[in-house]
Design a protein around this nucleic acid. Structure first.
Lengths: 184, 184
DNA sequence: TTAAAACTGTACTGGTCGTTACAGACTAGA
DNA sequence: TCTAGTCTGTAACGACCAGTACAGTTTTAA
């Protein structure tokens, strides 16, 4: 019964990039039709609840990616140090070494957050908590681990803001490196 | 000739809060008329170039505030340490201890930045450079001063993102305190 | 009191917004 | 083939968008 040539999951990364460029409220359906090559009827076929459902799918996709490539290694590595190394490597890769922003962070800043509250909250709290536990296994005390995790996650977010404000991705890679070096 | 009861400058802080809540593209003129109590004709009287000019006025107002309350103390304090202390105090006050976001940072993330490129860039580069020079006067080497300044400015931005994502201003105050303590 | 300028209310422009309705085309399994 | 389900193009919906036109009111300075 299904055709499934252009699958729903193929569209989601494109949606992600469009939301990154224009923000949630700045993204129009006509822009989405342009970028995905899908007409409105197709979009509403895949996402019956419209724009909101598209953004939810994107956020879920991001969370899945981080779960797979960042959180799981942090949790499951035999050696916490190698888990941390993997985190920094994957984060650098995900954000294209500072050329790509964090959509969840961008959504967090204005009232877009209110529409995706649980997802935005989960993304950052899972990251912070998982990272703190990894740091504990590395030998840090509970409080220091928590503080350091907070410093790292917010440091990454801030570096993305700063890098884009200066249109200079190196700001991100520099800051990321310093965050990593502080652990050594 | 002028009436000047509701002056242009009285409107700007209100505009700032509206842009903070909804973002630039998410802010409609009708929302602005509601919040300012001014009709469209009055708004276009004060800001002939419309929404864009309103945002420019807000950004200029923010930059002026930081120049006055943050950058100048950093530059002009006899003792760099007291200038730094003042910076952290004023930053905490300005962002309502984590309950208020940084509009310039929010604008930096999506294509809003492209409309206000120079202002967004200036705000962050002035902050970073001024802070680095203050740290140099405190005794840090050129490179360390620059790196530390970058860490602090991006740390503040990231803490604002993280605090709002968790709807927990304490994340901001905690992080701000740690950034300050690292200098001691 | 007069004139010029500052300000504002009302109504409207053309356009775009997100969403829906619906018929038709396509595809897969029977 | 038939049929059920998947997908899509077209056209329209009412609502709202940013911006404008313009006459009218209020204020100020002379």
């Amino acid at each position: 019964m299904p055709r499934e040539i252009a699958e729903r999951k193929d569209i989601i990364p494109v949606l992600g990039e469009v939301f990154r460029e224009h923000g949630y409220s700045g993204t129009s359906l006509s822009e989405i039709t342009l970028r995905t090559g899908l007409g409105k009827s197709s979009l509403y076929h895949f996402f019956p609840n419209g724009k909101k459902e598209m953004a939810e799918a994107v956020l879920d996709h991001i969370t899945d990616w981080f779960e797979q490539n960042v959180f799981m290694p942090l949790r499951d590595s035999d050696d916490p140090v190698s888990g941390l190394r993997k985190m920094f490597r994957e984060v650098d890769r995900y954000f294209y070494s500072g050329k790509r922003i964090c959509l969840v962070g961008a959504f967090a800043l204005d009232d877009t957050r209110d529409h995706f509250e649980a997802r935005v909250n989960d993304y950052f709290s899972t990251w912070t908590i998982t990272l703190a536990q990894s740091l504990k296994r590395k030998g840090l005390g509970t409080r220091v681990a928590r503080d350091t995790a907070e410093d790292i996650v917010s440091g990454i977010q801030g570096a993305l803001v700063l890098a884009r404000s200066q249109d200079d991705p190196k700001v991100f890679t520099r800051t990321l490196k310093r965050l990593q070096d502080r652990l050594a």
